[in-house]
């Protein structure tokens, strides 16, 4: 099992938690707009922003992870992280084309 150093592990967790906190804040705002103010247009826009943020979080976290592995001198792991991002993009395009 290959672990990141404590410092880099903390960085990765911090990034993940930061994305989650932003998503939660936007979701709470959307929930409140929908339920208490009946402002569905703003609520739906906020929900859409959160969905995009969550979808973008995966490549963002993978790139960060690849960078952290590279910082520790582990190029193959950094390349695997980049490979996952590439397959996600190719996969998305291929599914779009075939299905």
């Amino acid at each position: 099992m290959i672990l990141l150093s404590v410092k880099n592990e903390r960085r990765f967790i911090l990034l993940t938690n930061a994305i989650l906190v932003i998503a939660l804040a936007l979701l709470l705002a959307a929930f409140a707009m929908n339920r208490f103010m009946d402002n569905h247009i703003v609520a739906n826009t906020l929900s859409r922003i959160v969905v995009v943020l969550i979808l973008l979080s995966t490549p963002l976290r993978l790139l960060a992870l690849g960078h952290l592995f590279r910082l520790e001198g582990r190029w193959p792991n950094a390349l695997v992280a980049l490979g996952v991002v590439a397959i996600l993009i190719i996969g998305g395009l291929a599914k779009w084309y075939f299905l």
């Binding site: 929930f31 929908n34 929900s47």
Partner: peptide, 10 residues
């Protein structure tokens, strides 16, 4: 489904 998304994701 954007009115359901906040409740489910949160």
């Amino acid at each position: 489904t954007l009115d359901i998304v906040p409740a489910v994701v949160m």
